[in-house]
């Protein structure tokens, strides 16, 4: 924790955070959205959730439809630029906004993109290093947890130690490290649908790594990776419990794990 958050009793002010919920959380795991909202509030932020947000444009961008991606980038920027910070419970969507919007857009829009990029954070990174208050300690019934580093979070945004330190300080969890944490899980957005066999083999390698770590629960910061790994584990009959890291940090594991019965 840095100096900003060390003095939790008198947060100097409550910054406004625009929470970009991401389309996958919106569609498949709203509980992660509510967990993120609650975490940001507990960390001393005023949270707004812009109602017109949809998708950051990554599927179009990565599929080579730059025009479609630009339109969605402009729409998303308009939703987010009023807040002090933008926080995203996904490394790849946060990376799309902060790394790729400025490359994709030109002229005045590029300036606006750079301004938003400068205040956009992946959820773990924000809670760890930027938020005004330290998160309260919560009780989580499991301590056998592995962390999956999404590639964009890891390499574009350098999110590595933040979730591990948060899990330790907030939940008392020491993450069981994987042998090859820097290797992609095979999701890759549309890649997993275009090249499903290759993608599945990559997921299997990741799941083997998780199994070898003897963790009972796999968490991470990207719904795409998590849905893909949970879906593959389910197809393989592997009993691993998969969750977003926000669920653990919020202490609320009442929702069944991803892909598990309700």
């Amino acid at each position: 924790m840095n100096d900003v958050s060390s003095d939790q009793s008198v947060p100097s002010e409550r910054p406004t955070v625009a929470l970009f919920i991401t389309c996958l959380v919106d569609l498949f795991r709203p509980s992660v959205g509510f967990a993120s909202l609650s975490l940001l509030q507990r960390a001393g932020c005023e949270v707004v959730i812009p109602g017109q947000q949809t998708c950051c444009g990554q599927p179009a961008y990565n599929s080579g439809d730059y025009r479609g991606a630009r339109a969605l980038a402009r729409q998303t920027l308009k939703q987010l630029e009023a807040a002090d910070y933008v926080v995203v419970p996904s490394g790849s969507c946060a990376g799309m906004i902060s790394e790729h919007y400025p490359r994709l857009l030109e002229g005045p829009w590029r300036e606006r993109a750079l301004a938003v990029a400068a205040k956009t954070y992946e959820l773990n990174a924000f809670l760890h290093s930027v938020a005004p208050a330290r998160l309260p300690v919560v009780k989580v019934k499991t301590d056998s947890v592995a962390y999956h580093d999404g590639c964009a979070g890891l390499r574009e945004l350098h999110v590595r130690k933040q979730p591990r330190e948060l899990l330790h300080s907030v939940c008392g969890i020491t993450v069981k490290e994987l042998q090859q944490p820097e290797v992609c899980c095979g999701f890759g957005g549309t890649f997993c649908a275009k090249m499903p066999q290759i993608s599945a083999r990559m997921a299997d390698n990741k799941l083997k790594d998780v199994q070898a770590s003897q963790a009972q629960l796999l968490c991470g910061g990207d719904m795409g990776c998590l849905l893909s790994l949970a879906g593959r584990a389910s197809r393989n009959g592997q009993p691993i419990e998969v969750r977003h890291v926000a669920e653990l940090l919020s202490g609320d594991l009442s929702a069944p794990a991803i892909g598990k019965d309700t």
Partner: peptide, 15 residues
């Protein structure tokens, strides 16, 4: 997707 993976069911309604 579903040739290789199960598809996790969404929760009750969208966020």
């Amino acid at each position: 997707w579903s040739s290789q993976r199960d598809f996790p069911a969404p929760q009750a309604a969208t966020f």
